[in-house]
Amino acid sequence: MIRMSLLPPLDRTAYREGVKAMTPLAAAVAVWGVVTGVAMVNAGLTIPAALLMTFTVFAGSAQLAVMPLLATGAPLPIVWVTALLVNLRFVIFAAASRRSFMHLPWPQRLLASYLNGDLGFALFSRRFASADQHGNPEQWGYFYGVAFVNWGVWQAGSVVGFLIGGLMPSDWGFELAAYLALMAVLIPMVQRFPAVAGIISTAAVAVLAVGLPLRLGLLLAVLVGVTVALVGEALRDRRLSRLSRV
């Protein structure tokens, strides 16, 4: 019988380095977990359901994004597609760091995938940006040092958030906290003209098309926004190349 471990060989020194790299960021992760936890419970989720959600889904922005959809009993395909759209950034992360993981046995790749959130990816890609060899115990050690601290701190923060949220009256309109928390994810993504044009058109379509059945206005808005951003990017590139020729 082949005994299959879920973890690849981890270099101890690199593991500790990962833990250390994550430590100064732990406070931010914990706070974001608390905010998400409070927002989930304030949206109306019971504490058992919130616990089930955080320990399975493990994706803060997606959890917050689908909360208003779940509250109104939106069709599940719309709920899932919304989460997929919010999560699409992970596809880019995975494409960028795949060389370090793709030769592992698939159960190990699956666990690494599940734990590969925003911060983990940011630290990992900064640390090994100039590495000439990919996929070794040093990189896996660092990755899991970061990932385990991130997972533990995030879940602890979320659970504290559920408890705090459970103590607060739910009729104070605190679902606004969830939208504010999502703004903290959104704003750093929107630094340049094409992205700004994209989200403004998205917002306009989302509001005007809110009456569409099955919450399809959401998807239409994203489609229009991405198209506007891509067109904006093409226009900008053409203008830049014309300027550089002068």
């Binding site: 208003p68 919010v86 880019i92 969830a178 939208y179 959104l186 994209g198 379509v205 994203v222 991405v226």
Partner: peptide, 23 residues
């Protein structure tokens, strides 16, 4: 495709926030 993927998450978050707050 990679370019489109870059904009989709921001747009999805915006759509959720806009419908939540402006409708």
């Amino acid at each position: 495709v990679e370019r489109a993927l870059r904009y989709a998450p921001a747009c999805a978050l915006t759509a959720i926030i806009a419908q939540g707050v402006l409708t």
